[in-house]
Amino acid sequence: MGKLLRLIGQRLGLGLLTLLVVSVLIFFAVELLPGDLAEAVLGQAATEETVAAMRAQLGLDRPAPVRYLEWLAGAAVGDFGNSLVTGDRVSEAIGERLLNTLMLATYAALIAVPVSIVLGILVALLRNSLFDRVANVLTLTSISSPEFFLGYILILYLSVKTGWFPAIASQTADMSLGDYLYRTFLPALTLVLVVTAHMMRMTRAAIINLLASPYIEMARLKGVYPLKVIVRHALPNAWAPIINVVALNLAYLITGVVLVEVVFVYPGIGQLLVDAVAKRDFPIVQACCLIFAATFILLNLAADVGSILTNPRLRHPK
């Protein structure tokens, strides 16, 4: 266990370093993109004069490394600066939207992860049966079109035609949890459909891959029920790839859902990033990217720790 804690500590430390590298990369990526904040904000009303005035006001005329270091100095003490466009604190601009994104991701994940793992176990158990085929065809079909298209179809059938759910997941301040779950059901369902196939198929593959192993054969010859063989004997050794795919999809739920946000008019962090990139509003872009980076780092770490925990050989290396 001590070794594991050391690993987590080491990885968290490296995580900070990774964040630093990411922040440098993002800063210079935004710098390298053609056009800058002044041009983007002023749009077609940009004249040489107004652009120059705006650059001077926002300090964009100073060299890039200086600006980066200034930002870094602020970030080091927890001050991520103000949006260059609106002048709002970055934390204020991001706070509510980040919360929205996390809530929707949690909602979708709480449905998708158990469903796909249970489905994965079932199709591994009933492999090559009609159920296996149908479940696979349905989930594969659902990921074969862009997620916003899936959203349109769900809206058409579950909202416009039947009126069961609202088409727009608009938020009000005084919503109860039940209200929230009802109003955001369609976006959550869309996300569930998008991520289920991947996790389910990986569960299936990882389990089937082990079924011919001698120890499984042994269990089966001993007359253990097929379901028990899978859950007790195969699954524990199949966790590593499953956990990794789950982590990948959880990360997607947080970082990749801008189109779902747009389709359901859900104010999440994805749209904020898209707008900020369009305006080259560096502090916001940077903050969003760092949140995404932290998501990946933490989820990847969790997946690695999970892989180690589920494999005694990794837990107690020789």
């Binding site: 002044a38 904000v41 002023l42 749009g43 009303a45 004249t47 004069e49 107004t50 005035a53 705006m54 001077a56 006001q57």
Partner: peptide
């Protein structure tokens, strides 16, 4: 004015 960044300046 010189330091105006307004789109209406022109």
């Amino acid at each position: 004015g010189d330091d105006s960044t307004s789109a209406a300046k022109p």
